[in-house]
Amino acid sequence: MPRWIDVCALEEIEPEGTRRFDHEGRTFVIVRGPGEEVFCLDGLCTHEKVHLAGGLVIDGVIECPKHAAQFDCRTGEVLMGPACVDLRTWPARVEGGRVLVEV
């Protein structure tokens, strides 16, 4: 049964920053928008399984640091190759200054 999990304090992720989140053998990337909005996506690029945390986030798009595949932070959709498979997205929200995800 999915449940909301506390990841960290919002202030631990800078605006347009990322954070890797490992949970029960899976890895995710938490992305913060320019404000207080947060997103949770599968943590590995669908091209060569590289961790997306640390990738550049601009205008709601996260780029894989290795080969520059681009994904929409909101939908997980591939916007530019070399990846061709979308990322799965997971519910994420901020409550009382904490980042919560449902994975």
Binding site: V50, G54, G55, L56, E63, C64, P65, A68
Partner: peptide, 11 residues
């Protein structure tokens, strides 16, 4: 390491 340099190059 890609995690360090990739983002600088994209910028």
């Amino acid at each position: 390491p890609a995690a360090l340099i990739g983002r600088e190059i994209r910028l």
